[in-house]
Simulated assay, not measured.
Amino acid sequence: MAEEKPAQSVGPASHRTRAGRRRAESARPSPPTAPPSAEGETRAAARRLARARRRRRTTVEAVAALAGLLALVGYVNWWSEPVPDDQPDPDGLPAVVGRPALPSATADADAMPGLRPRERSPSPSPSAVVVPTPAPPAAPPTLTLGRADIPATVDLTEAGRRDWLHWGLGGTTSPVRKRDGSASLRDLGGQGDRDSWDGNQELFRWRDGAPVNSAGDVADGVYTCGAGNGFRLAVVADGQPRTATVYLGVWMARGRLDIRVGDDGPRRTLRLEERHTSLSSGVTVRFEAPQGTRVLLTWTVEETFTPHCGNVGLQAVALR
């Protein structure tokens, strides 16, 4: 038979080992802890201290805000208080009454009561001052003369686009004139008796006349005899450069044409002479003068070379 070994008992020994470990751990010193009552008192004291600090801070801020408000109200009252020496504004209110409140720090801040801007009636917009531009000084009148032979036929409708006159066909004192013309040409009469004749070498025609509407190849004209006798005409200026052509002649005489612009304007003189027969000419008068100024033309017998009616003659005048 085999030898029997005694059985090992492990339960009690293990139990003892664990029990000993617990005893050793429990024997170690535990960290000190405050008693429960002392910890609660410490937290309560901290809260009381925090509340006291908040109350002090709130009190200080309130006092500072009140002091600032009082200073602002005092400043505004001092600013808006009327001063006896202040003069009233043009609208009748004292100069310091109703001054506007100081601007708020924020856009949505409440307005301070009693500080309203002064209300005024809207002032009219200042009207623009229009300074009239001075008119440029008027140019001095000008006057020049020219002379040329008369064409065999003169078309007064073309030559006198602004105005024209023709003598002889309508009688000695009633010339035919341009219909609807400018009426710038005037017959002022003259010294001596007028007569008409129809033997002029130059012929005239027109298509816009009155009282004779149209005519062709008219040889008529008027004349006056004797030294010192003649014709007086006028052209009314309109401020623009104009040209008037006078169709005139002499028969056994010397004629003198005097032209002047207004009373104090330039003057010109032209003579036409024929001792033995007749002579005709077209005298061109170029001028510029202020509107309404009269350019005066005087066509006179200066000397005769026959006892039988030495004369000056006039056929037409055209203006353009």
Rank of each mutant, 00 (worst) to 15 (best):
P94R: 12
G239P: 01
A148G: 08
D149M: 03
A237Q: 11
D108P: 01
R177V: 07
T142C: 02
T269G: 00
T298V: 06
E303D: 09
A109P: 00
R22E: 15
H308E: 12
V312Q: 09
A148I: 00
A27R: 13
S26G: 12
P137C: 00
R242Q: 15
L156C: 04
M252Q: 15
D86N: 06
H308N: 13
D193R: 01
R205F: 01
R18L: 15
R21E: 15
A27C: 03
V83S: 05
A52S: 10
L49S: 11
G190W: 03
V97L: 09
L115V: 13
T144L: 02
H15L: 15
V63Y: 02
A316Y: 06
V246T: 06
P32H: 09
G313S: 14
W79F: 09
R55F: 05
P126L: 11
N200G: 15
G189P: 01
T133P: 00
L69T: 12
Q291F: 00
P29C: 01
A109H: 09
E274D: 12
V250H: 07
G216Q: 13
A7K: 13
P88N: 09
E25S: 11
G68A: 14
R23Q: 14
L70I: 05
V250F: 06
T144C: 01
V176S: 10
G216M: 06
E3K: 12
T17K: 15
G265Y: 02
P35S: 13
F287H: 12
R28E: 10
G228R: 13
L93K: 11
D217S: 14
S281V: 11
R22A: 15
V130C: 01
V97C: 02
T157L: 01
R186H: 10
F287C: 00
G160T: 10
Q291E: 07
R118C: 04
E3G: 06
A244Y: 00
T106P: 01
D198E: 14
A34H: 06
G40F: 05
G199P: 00
T173A: 08
D108C: 02
A44H: 01
W164L: 10
R294T: 13
D198A: 13
P12R: 12
P137M: 01
T153W: 03
M1K: 09
G74Y: 00
G282D: 05
G209W: 02
G160Q: 06
E41M: 09
V97H: 08
L70N: 02
L169H: 10
R57G: 11
W206A: 08
P175Q: 02
T157Y: 03
S280Y: 06
R23V: 11
T142A: 04
L248I: 13
D238E: 11
P307Q: 08
N77A: 15
R242N: 14
A65N: 07
V312S: 03
G228C: 06
T142G: 03
D264N: 14
W206K: 13
R232C: 03
T33I: 05
T157F: 03
E288L: 00
V10K: 12
D149N: 11
A67T: 14
P136G: 03
V222D: 01
T33Q: 13
P151H: 07
L93N: 08
D238H: 14
G255F: 03
L115Y: 09
T17Q: 15
A67I: 05
G221D: 13
E4L: 13
L297E: 07
R147W: 08
P137T: 12
R267C: 00
